[in-house]
Design a binder for these strands. Structure first.
Length: 580
RNA sequence: UGGGGUGUAGCCAAGUGGUAAGGCACAAGGUUUUGAUCCUUGCAUGCGUUGGUUCGAAUCCAGCCACCCCAGCCA
């Protein structure tokens, strides 16, 4: 991996908005706090797919490192094999690479530090800072006290160093059942901070690990592992979310109890002569988006119960889903930048995300026409069998994108919503006897409306004004422009129109008992009879298009076939008409 | 009722004692062969609240209020 990023719209390349973390790092750099180094890490647990909330953390960690000439590691925080899997490891790596970020060196795993972690645990025992406890999880909870009452010491708290050493070794040796013993830090059962009430450092789990196989039957906890892993990797700024704020004293306690010389000796930079400075944790607010559920548990539940079609369902807020939906890396990075980083818990409006993707796609997606609900339109003054091939710009403002050929003939298809027999006030599209511009082609007049016995419009008979191709009508103001596809040349396609998955702003809010009750029944609408112009499905076509007047669409890489292309609607165009 | 945090516009957010940036949304105009894009303009005498300090306070101090997190051998 290189440290360059080819993304032209990378927000970290331009002038970045100030936030408290950037300010802190600038100060640390100025004061030479970490010898001028900036080294961050993104530490996901491989127990699910990454979502847009993780993207905020990814952009922050990788972004802040890059801005300051530093590095960012990718480290799987894999200390709980019961919930983790290789599938998630692979998906996470893939997502980060897709976003365009390059982690420093090899991928790291907390599990690759298990030997060191064990040795440091022995060191804590030898220093009388940790002990093997025989309390069961239930008893342990009783001893912990409550929010308002202090806890009580474990009866094993004063066990001798020798006995602790021996028991810990036997824990590792597999001599005990799960829950029978644990290794705990010896801190203060009376602390008002519950995390400091002799927290568990190691627990017994007789299960295999996706990275270490059956080597271990004891696994270190997050609190014990994370700080030491940061120290081993010489992380300078350990950025995490707000709920870990109460854990910071424990993070510091562990690192300060350990011998700094031995910490340094196993660190990545042990061979260089830098000043060894302990990493420091800083917390920021995680991203919340309205109309979106971000809890990994719930996302997993939706996948497993079939509410959505997998982790990469285009309605999911996962990076895999958003990618399939048509979101671009640039749009996600720009969104994360626009949202900012602070310590106040906030809920970002979905319109911010929508703006980010529209902004990117407006300039980057070529245009094409696609009719969603076809209505036949016959041009009576165009000869049968006569086809014209119009050369239209791929992009209205970017000539470098070139031109495409769009066939035009006697029988066309237009969208049913572009014709109204009884138009509402302000209607700018086709009406009986009215005129409208066919996008990129002629002005037509609607001469006759053909209905079936039930009064449903079956066909429109129109005539074209042959002198209006590429010309503005003299003295005549035609306001409406509608899109169309030649019936004989169009390619049938399936379109999937996606909308928000939930119809309440906070699906995980306290007033929602079950997310299933607030699902949007129209989050997916499939249209099977759409007609798209040939250029959008031709050899070498772009993966995403703006279907003019409809929205941005991306070809579904999985479900499309040669016979039936499938397009996912990424986002509609802004619409200041329908709301009126 | 323990501890740790957070309150600046409808939503994000900058601001660190010198008189409230920016974005989104919204509204009104203009351009337009996409009701898109683009352009212009408008949008907090006000910074949770009440007092205090000061020539001057969103910024400093005190009290109060609201909301979030913590009692996994999850992360």
């Amino acid at each position: 991996m290189t440290d360059s990023d080819s993304d032209s719209k990378d927000p970290s390349a331009g002038s970045a908005a100030s936030n408290f973390i950037r300010n802190m790092i600038a100060q640390d750099l100025a004061s030479q706090k970490h010898g001028g180094r900036v080294h961050t890490r993104f530490p996901p647990e491989p127990n699910g797919y990454l979502h847009i909330g993780h993207a905020k953390s990814i952009c922050l960690n990788f972004g802040v490192a890059k801005e300051n000439g530093g590095h960012c590691n990718l480290r799987f925080d894999d200390t709980n094999p019961a919930k983790e899997s290789q599938e998630f490891v692979d998906a996470i790596k893939d997502n980060i690479a897709w976003l365009g970020f390059n982690w420093h060196g090899e991928v790291r795993y907390s599990s690759s530090y298990f030997d060191y972690l064990y040795d440091f645990a022995v060191q804590l025992i030898e220093k009388s800072q940790a002990f093997v406890c025989s309390l069961s999880p239930e008893e342990s909870r009783e001893h912990r006290g409550s929010l308002t009452e202090p806890g009580r010491n474990s009866p094993d708290r004063d066990r001798s160093v020798a006995e602790n050493l021996q028991l810990f070794a036997r824990m590792r040796g597999g001599e005990f059942a799960e829950g029978e013993y644990s290794l705990r830090a010896k801190i203060d059962m009376g602390s008002p901070n519950i995390n400091m009430r002799d927290p568990v450092l190691y627990r017994i789990r007789h299960i295999d690990h996706h990275q270490t196989g059956d080597k271990w039957c004891i696994y270190p906890t997050y609190d014990y592992t994370h700080c030491i892993s940061d120290a081993i990797e010489n992380i300078t700024h350990s950025l995490c979310t707000l709920e870990f704020e109460d854990h910071r004293p424990l993070y510091d306690w562990i690192l300060h109890k350990l011998d700094s010389g031995s910490l340094r000796s196993v660190s990545d930079l042990s061979d260089s002569n830098f000043d060894y400075v302990l990493p420091e944790q800083t917390e920021f607010a995680k991203l919340k988006l309205n109309f979106t559920m971000m809890g990994k548990r719930n996302l997993k539940e939706m996948v497993e119960s079939g509410v959505v079609n997998g982790w990469d369902d285009p309605r999911m807020p996962t990076l895999a889903g958003m990618r399939r939906r048509g979101f671009t890396p640039a749009s996600i990075k720009n969104f994360c930048e626009s949202v900012g980083v602070s310590r106040s818990e906030s809920v970002v409006d979905m319109s911010m995300l929508e703006h980010a993707i529209r902004e990117d796609l407006d300039s980057s997606a070529p245009r094409a026409m696609c009719v969603l609900n076809p209505l036949k339109l016959v041009l009576s003054n165009v000869d049968e069998g006569q086809a014209e091939h119009l050369e239209l710009a791929r992009h209205p403002k970017d000539e470098s994108m070139g031109r495409r050929t769009v066939p035009f003939s006697r029988e066309l298809l237009i969208d049913r919503s572009d014709f109204e027999a009884e138009p509402p006030p302000g209607f700018k599209r086709l009406i009986p006897g009215g005129e409208v511009r066919l996008r990129g082609a002629y002005i037509i007049r609607c001469d006759e409306v053909v209905e079936d016995s039930k009064g449903v419009v079956q066909q429109l008979n129109c005539t074209i004004d042959k002198d209006t191709l590429g010309k503005r009508p003299q003295g005549r103001k035609v306001k409406g422009v509608i899109h169309w596809v030649s019936a004989a040349h169009g390619v049938k396609a399936k379109l999937r129109l996606y909308d928000r998955l939930f119809n309440v702003q906070i699906p995980e809010g306290k007033d929602v008992q079950d997310y299933r009750q607030v699902l949007n029944p129209d989050s997916l609408i499939e249209l099977n009879e759409c007609m798209v112009e040939p250029s959008a499905v031709a050899e070498g076509a772009s993966p995403n298009y703006q279907f003019e007047r409809e929205g941005y669409f991306r070809l579904d890489a999985i479900d499309s076939t040669d016979e039936l292309p499938v397009f996912n609607r990424t986002i509609t165009l802004r619409d200041s008409w329908s709301s009126k």
